[in-house]
Amino acid sequence: MSTILECSGLTKRYGSVYALNGADLTLETGRIVGLLGPNGSGKTTLIKLANGLLTPTSGTLTIDGAAPGKETRAKVAYLPDADYLPDWMTLRDLTGMFRDFYGDFDPVKAREMFSSLGLDEKERLKALSKGNREKTQLVLTMSRAAKLYLLDEPIGGVDPAARDYILRTIIGNYSENGTVLLSTHLIADVENVLDEVVFLKQGQVLLHENADALREERGKSVDAIFREVFAC
């Protein structure tokens, strides 16, 4: 096992507001990690920093030993929590684009997933419902054999049946030595697939533990612990 993602003292400030405030986190390869925290705790900021889409105010973040850049991007598969794909493109166009740019993209896998989710490859993105656009984004991300998957709210907008399929996809598709970091509010839904959990609170890492050990130690589900820790 080796370290795939490491941040130390990671801070991102917007004016006087701290989105992240000295976060320290180390993730090993081959794990599925839940990044959990209430709204505004810094989950999306952390994931965007790991993709180099934001510049840290202070602190460092490395992926496989390197700062986010051209080289790390070939190893990271990112699913943003936004409608980010050009909506005039068809699913087939997008598949072609991912194949063009990512050496680890498997178009056959993508096609299979599109068909089992009932998505038509000839359809333009703008003709799809919000949920189906999210599924499309997830299929494209998970059809890569990346070292690190950064999934920001991957199941937030889809129906419960598709949720199960997506979680199965995530578990089934991530490569042996790949790591998945997924952020979500829907803890009960993902609880069973998580190896580790990270609680973020006000921009800091409150807790990072093995999911089973945590449940055993506290005698409750991660969901129940979350509700307790972040009770309003």
Binding site: N51, L53, K70, R73, Y78, P80, P86
Partner: peptide, 13 residues
């Protein structure tokens, strides 16, 4: 903008 989430994570300089 929005599409920056796609473009800026491509392995391109």
């Amino acid at each position: 903008g929005r599409e920056g989430y796609l473009m800026n994570v491509l392995p391109v300089s």
